[in-house]
Design a binder for these strands. Structure first.
Lengths: 166, 166
DNA sequence: ACTAATCCCATTGACTCCCATCATTTCCCA
DNA sequence: TGGGAAATGATGGGAGTCAATGGGATTAGT
């Protein structure tokens, strides 16, 4: 799986469009749908966003729960609050007002890669709420046990190149 | 699996017709029948609706239950109360009075995508009964362990496009 | 013949495509 | 290694397209 990493700040134009950073777009190219699935974050004044592959995993997890169960209904609330935002030919999406309001985003949007998914923040809010997390992690001396190395699957008929997913 | 996500509110005209939101219609295009299977929810004042694929799964699940069991009888009632609603050439369906009454729908219908299936609500009822579910999920700090990443099946001779499952 | 359902066409407003501009970054060559 | 040219990603805006909607006309059913 290609990885979503780093931060990018892009401008929102008067039509409400904002460019999805090219490195992120490239990740979604390999998926059935080029665009974002986005919903308001539970934990932060931010937008949670992901590609179709990740969203499909989320839906699959919900699908495993019994029909009509309380748990399934609660989690379905996420899906009901999710917006499907296709990229235009220029690689831009339109963030709906509901999401903008939740995140307090006005003129600019900060895209923060989180590996498999990403978040979208108001830059000022991010600086206030999120950047301290890095310092916190450093101060606490965070440790992490990694899963074992997986053998790289050989792409059918293709040779690996140096740039990644070309 | 194609995903049904997000909410859409559409008007019901004086003939009782309402447009099925285009993103949902697109999902059903890939299935044998373009339209809805719909029955009254027994948990909510709402209509449960789905495409042919999901309905087939539901029937298969009921089929697995022991013949003459109480459970099978109960769930079969769902099937007996299900309406098959084809889309017209404009992508609209006519919701029968029985379903409208159950959901208290009059002028507008709210379509809520829930992954594999969807619900249809009266907008005001939804705001009162359903929107709190999102807040509840947030308050409970819902967490969800996702199933492992599945390898993406290679579409036969097809290249991914930007519009999704058109 | 009357009722009801479906098809077909027109309207409208939002959305998306396309094109132009700009700011960088990358590449190439001296 | 500096400068300039070409390529690329981000941005802005005009116009054509499409989804939603309304209503008349046609067909089916009783």
């Amino acid at each position: 799986m290609a990885l979503l990493v780093g931060r990018h700040v892009n401008r929102i134009d008067r039509k409400g469009r904002v460019s999805v950073p090219k490195p992120f777009r490239d990740v979604f190219q390999g998926q059935g749908f080029v665009g974002l699935y986005a919903y308001p974050s539970f934990k932060y004044p931010a937008i949670e966003a992901m590609g179709e592959d990740f969203m499909a995993r989320l839906v699959a997890a919900i699908d495993d729960l019994p029909l009509y169960s309380e748990e399934r209904d609660d989690l379905s609330a996420i899906v009901e609050n999710t917006h499907r935002l296709p990229c235009d030919t220029e690689g831009r999406v339109v963030l709906p007002p509901e999401l903008l309001d939740h995140a307090g985003i006005t003129g600019e949007a900060l895209f923060a890669g989180r590996g498999g998914a990403l978040q979208i923040w108001d830059p000022a809010t991010y600086a206030r709420d999120r950047e301290p997390a890095f310092e916190r992690a450093r101060a606490r001396g965070v440790t992490l046990r990694l899963p074992p190395q997986q053998p790289r699957p050989v792409p059918p008929g293709g040779t690996p190149d140096s740039t990644g997913e070309g």
